[in-house]
């Protein structure tokens, strides 16, 4: 347990960054209460997507760079919900419900593919995700949706790249049970929802299937010799990750207020992977709490760096900084894990 919370260079770096940024924000007179509120919202907004990586990590499939597969399942669920004109919390939960079967089917197929490429799941997942996005691009362009708010205003055929959710379920979770505390808005309902999901996921890893998953991730031969159907468990992990990713994008989109289709989800896997590593996971057995901590650290720097970059007159710097942070952390984790593996094997 102790070793899992070991401070690695990325954590030290990001903590130092946070302190510097907070000092900068304070200096620039940016209200800290607003920042905290934003940070909490963004924690949940991205947290579910980050958590969705855990089943696959724990089952030994590595980081799910094929996250777009799950995201597309969620987008489809939401499009259907909007098409059926579901509004409010019913709209959000309706979308989540619809995306379960979609995610399960896609996850099953994706899992079958990944079982073919053992040991290369990450790169294969990346490109399966990328190609799936382009397949979905076709779909969005021709899908027979009927709600005019979703369609191109001219011609009325094909979905718009960005669909506003105002009037459907924009920010329904953000606003439920939220209350103000000084200049800090606490999105209480959102936090409760997130906590429930986190606890359920945590408990899952203490069921028979959950323990089998973790064992498979650590040692496939052991699991196989102990009577676990390794392929089935791996597929189950991919299905679970895919459905959670679908839910993740639902939470994300309602919080953002817009549905972004087409190529928008292309690169979404990378910040999520980075958040997992920031939480102290190193690409294998990952606790739910690590995903939560990692997301919080990542999103808080995101929230603070924006206004500061604006104050510095170079708005792009926030985006560049985030890109370097994201990929630097992932690369660090890979190099660290590679070195560790070499020592263990040797």
């Amino acid at each position: 347990m102790r070793s899992r919370l070991h401070l690695q260079i990325p954590q030290v770096f990001i903590l130092v960054m946070l302190v510097v940024l907070l000092a900068g924000a304070f200096h620039a007179g940016i209200p800290l209460g607003g920042i905290m509120g934003d940070a909490l919202v963004r924690l949940v907004m991205n947290g579910v997507l980050v958590m969705s990586m855990i089943p696959m990590l724990n089952a030994g499939l590595g980081v799910n760079f094929g996250l777009p597969v799950g995201i597309c399942a969620g987008l489809l669920g939401m499009c259907l919900a909007v098409n059926f004109r579901l509004t409010g919390l019913a709209g959000l939960f309706g979308a989540m419900l619809i995306s379960i079967p979609i995610g399960a089917v896609l996850g099953y197929l994706y899992g079958r593919l990944l079982n073919r490429v053992k040991g290369r799941e990450e790169i294969a997942g990346t490109f399966v995700g990328f190609s799936f996005i382009s397949i979905m691009n076709f779909f969005w362009a021709v899908a027979p949706f009927t709600n005019p708010t979703m369609l191109w205003p001219i011609g009325g055929q094909g979905l718009r790249p960005v669909i506003g959710l105002q009037g459907y379920f924009a920010k329904v979770l953000n606003h439920s049970w939220s209350f103000r505390l000084g200049d800090l808005t606490v999105p209480f309902g959102m936090l409760v929802f997130f906590a429930c999901l986190a606890v359920l996921l945590h408990l899952f890893f203490h069921t028979r299937a959950g323990t089998a998953m973790v064992a498979t991730g650590e040692n496939e031969v052991f699991a196989g010799l102990s009577g676990v159907d390794v392929k089935a468990i791996r597929t189950l992990a991919v299905i679970l990750s895919t459905v959670l990713a679908a839910w993740g994008i639902c939470v994300y989109a309602q919080s953002y207020g817009f549905l972004e289709l087409y190529s928008a989800p292309l690169m979404m896997a990378f910040p999520a992977a980075s958040a997992i590593f920031l939480g102290g996971s190193l690409g294998h057995r990952t606790a739910v709490i690590q995903a939560v901590i990692g997301t919080f650290l990542f999103q808080t720097t995101y929230v603070i760096s924006g206004p500061i970059a604006n104050a510095l007159l170079v708005p792009e710097v926030a985006e560049i900084f985030r890109m370097i942070l994201t990929n630097g952390v992932i690369l660090y984790a890979m190099l660290y894990e590679g070195g560790r593996r070499r020592r263990v094997q040797g």
């Binding site: 973790v214 064992a215 650590e218 040692n219 031969v221 052991f222 010799l225 057995r285």
Partner: peptide, 9 residues
């Protein structure tokens, strides 16, 4: 180590 035990457990 390789097959008989989950060494991290």
């Amino acid at each position: 180590r390789a097959a008989g035990l989950l060494t991290d457990h």
